[in-house]
Nucleic acid binder design. Structure first.
Length: 427
DNA sequence: TCTGGGGTCCTAGGACCC
DNA sequence: TCTGGGGTCCTAGGACCC
């Protein structure tokens, strides 16, 4: 049996846990640069605020109702998340961290400690509430898909007390009979539409379709999903996260930028961040993809001419895998120069590291040089110093510092758990 | 009459997840 | 004024190999 433990409105709950006066009030958390809504408390959902809704659209609503607004504070959420996961590891041996706010658990073989799955679920819920003041729901089922479904029911039906166990065929049948097929894990909007066309509206109906048919319309993923609904596990627990296969970043500038110099500065900064992640997972990358975009949603200006659009990307294959920032920068910059076109107002530049291989992988081309070992060592030293003395204390001369564009974060909370000066004071 | 058969690797695009 | 960001997996088709 699998359990899925998932925090309720995680980002909002974290903000609340350090500010109890927000209890019972509408809370929202915004995306980078305060652009869109990425998390909503139940009260905010009731006001009709949609996931992903642009923040500026809420102006009127905010005048009518009291809504607590926060910029996203990933330092804080990340730290609370890791505390959350460590708590879960005290309950069972096998824990798969599935996302920042949810984890799958293997829950078999603990009968002597927890006589029932309900008991285990309640115990987890109470402990997380007590230690972190984060509300969670627990769903239990014979497969990950059913655990996920159970979790959703636990959230929807307050009478369950936050724990839903699907353990017998009868209980599972009953749950599937009314569960909308589009709410299943792995059914997105496209598949939901296709299924609807074929008169499949509930999870129970999907469970009973022929294998060949579902494979045809939803590929092997759909087949796996159907088997999971029938109670045969196809998705197993991944206790140790496999290394990432690609690492990318593509944040917007926050304003429109026409010149290559500024864009190159931003590229250097982005590259510095992704290289740090690359080295942290102990990998080398064998190619970089640079991309450049103008702004998509620009309104047609007064002169009636739509803003010129330009989107392009280029893959630069390296002569040998590396994780050295200056070395990668050379190739990334050449890629940028190749796709940059004068005369546009750009919104963002992106960088993606692909073809990641373990760092002990040293495959030399017959005539090409291997990675420069000195540069690799240098990168390690730079990381250590920056970890100790603060991000970007040691940086490339070409990296923009104190960027002049606004990193809009008007509603940022403090880093209560990771920065000495931000620790709460008790009076 | 009859025009092989089996495989790998890469890429772009689609779909999905949080 | 103002519209996010970071990932994974699968498939079909092309190119290539023997």
């Amino acid at each position: 049996m699998y359990a899925l433990v998932d925090a309720n409105s995680f980002y909002c709950s974290v903000e609340r846990s350090f500010n109890p006066s927000l209890e019972g009030k509408a809370v929202i958390v915004l995306s980078n640069r305060d652009g869109n809504v990425v998390a909503r408390s139940d009260e905010a959902k009731k006001l009709g605020i949609k996931m992903g809704q642009p923040f500026f659209e809420l102006k009127e609503l905010r005048e009518q109702h009291e809504i607590a607004v926060f910029s996203s504070n990933y330092t804080l959420y990340g730290d609370i998340s890791s505390r959350f996961m460590s708590l879960l590891c005290r309950f069972v041996e096998d824990v798969e961290v599935y996302s920042i706010d949810e984890a799958f658990l293997h829950v078999d073989g603990y009968d002597s400690i927890y006589p029932s799955y309900e008991g285990l679920g309640k115990s987890i819920k109470e402990t997380v509430a007590k230690r972190l003041r984060i509300p969670v729901c627990v769903g239990v089922g014979p497969t990950k898909t059913l655990a996920k479904l159970a979790n959703k029911l636990a959230k929807q039906r307050p009478e369950l007390g936050g724990v839903c166990v699907l353990d017998t065929p009868e209980v599972i049948d009953k749950a599937l009979a009314t569960f909308p097929v589009g709410d299943l894990w792995g059914v997105g909007s496209k598949s939901a539409a296709k299924l609807k066309k074929n008169d499949i509206d509930t999870a129970a109906q999907l469970r009973d379709v022929p294998d060949d048919w579902i494979r045809q319309i939803m590929t092997v993923n759909g087949l796996r999903l159907v088997h999971e609904l029938r109670g045969f596990p196809c998705k197993l627990l991944e206790v140790s996260a496999p290394p990432k296969k690609s690492i990318c970043t593509e944040p917007g500038f926050g304003r429109l930028v026409p010149d290559l110099n500024t864009i190159t500065d931003a590229l250097t900064t982005h590259l510095t961040r992704v290289c740090e992640k690359l080295r942290k997972q102990d990998s080398l990358c064998s190619a970089v993809v640079v991309s450049l975009h103008t702004k998509r949603y620009r309104k047609i200006p007064a002169n009636g001419l739509p803003a010129l659009q330009y989107h392009n990307h280029l893959t630069v294959v390296l002569p040998h895998p590396t994780n050295s920032t200056p070395e990668l920068l050379k190739y990334a910059e050449s890629g940028l120069k190749a796709i940059f076109k004068f005369g546009y107002n750009y919104q963002k530049v992106g960088i993606m590291l692909i073809g990641l291989v373990p760092s002990d992988y040293r495959q030399k081309g017959i005539f090409a040089e291997g990675p420069n070992e000195k540069l690799l060592t240098l990168a390690t030293v730079v990381d250590k110093l920056n970890y100790r003395y603060g991000q970007d204390k040691l940086r490339l001369a070409s990296q923009m510092y104190n960027p002049d564009w606004p990193m809009k974060q008007e509603y940022l909370s403090k880093c209560y758990t990771t920065r000495w000066k931000d620790i709460l004071e008790a009076h």
